[in-house]
Computed example of a mutant assay.
Amino acid sequence: MRADARKNRDHLLAVAGTAITEEGVDVSLRDIARRADVGLATLLRHFPTREALLEALLHTSFDELTAQAAELETSSAPQDALVSWLRDCVGWTTEYRGVTVLMAAAIEDTESALHASCVTLRAAGARLLARAQAAGVARTDLDGTDLFALIAALAWLGDQPSLAPRADHLFDVVASAILTNPASTHTGRTPPRARS
């Protein structure tokens, strides 16, 4: 890709990230193009669909969360690794309003531009969960799909203005329900605050 094309693409992604953070994933592509001071055709030349735009925007975050899971597998106790990663996933999903709905749909749709990234992310969480289960510190009646659904549910709570003040407490409740040793749910980190 030429340098000027890369610069234009990066600009579109930066503008899209801001727009989605402020208005959610349903923000119109026309509005993103207007904010970026380009025509809709220019945006669609780089990103022919909303999912293609979201995949490009979210790909780095998916990769970072997947890499973090791998690092936690070797650097932290199983229960602490699982809760830390779960906390960061929930915090990340609340940055982009509505992204969990798209992720839940994409994981079942092999044609979705987000499918591969979502499957990889779910697998990373499943490995952390399986490690905690093997160590006897997590419930054995959960799997990676359940964990993925819990991330979506916790992120949804953070998106609800009336429930957002309870999001941190409810995260701890859910983490306690996952672990067989609930004393380990608080890792000394402050969970991310939901947007106001």
Rank of each mutant, 00 (worst) to 15 (best):
L82N: 04
S84H: 10
S84T: 15
L86M: 12
R87E: 13
C89R: 05
V90R: 05
V90N: 01
V90C: 09
V90S: 03
G91L: 04
G91D: 01
G91N: 02
W92V: 02
W92H: 02
T93I: 04
T94E: 06
T94Y: 08
T94R: 09
T94L: 11
E95V: 12
R97G: 04
G98K: 03
V99R: 00
V99N: 05
T100G: 07
T100C: 07
L102P: 03
A104K: 02
A105M: 04
A106E: 00
A106I: 01
E108D: 12
E108A: 08
E108G: 03
D109H: 10
E111P: 01
A113C: 04
A113K: 06
A113N: 02
A113D: 03
L114C: 14
L114P: 06
H115A: 09
H115L: 07
A116K: 06
A116Q: 10
A116F: 02
S117T: 05
R122P: 00
A123M: 09
A123P: 00
R127E: 07
R127F: 04
R127Y: 05
R127I: 11
L129T: 13
L129I: 13
A130N: 11
R131W: 09
A132K: 08
Q133M: 13
A135N: 12
V137K: 15
A138M: 15
A138P: 15
A138T: 13
R139I: 15
T140M: 12
T140H: 15
T140S: 14
D141V: 00
T145D: 13
A149Q: 07
L150G: 00
I151Q: 10
L154H: 12
L154G: 04
G158Y: 03
G158C: 08
D159G: 14
Q160F: 06
Q160I: 15
Q160N: 15
P161Q: 08
S162I: 12
L163S: 05
A167N: 10
A167I: 06
H169Y: 03
H169F: 02
L170W: 13
L170K: 15
L170D: 12
F171K: 07
F171L: 15
D172L: 14
V173F: 11
V174P: 01
V174I: 15
A175L: 00
I178C: 02
I178D: 01
I178M: 06
L179T: 10
L179A: 12
T180I: 11
P182Q: 09
P182A: 05
A183W: 02
S184W: 05
S184Y: 08
T185N: 04
G188R: 05
P191T: 05
P192T: 09
P192S: 12
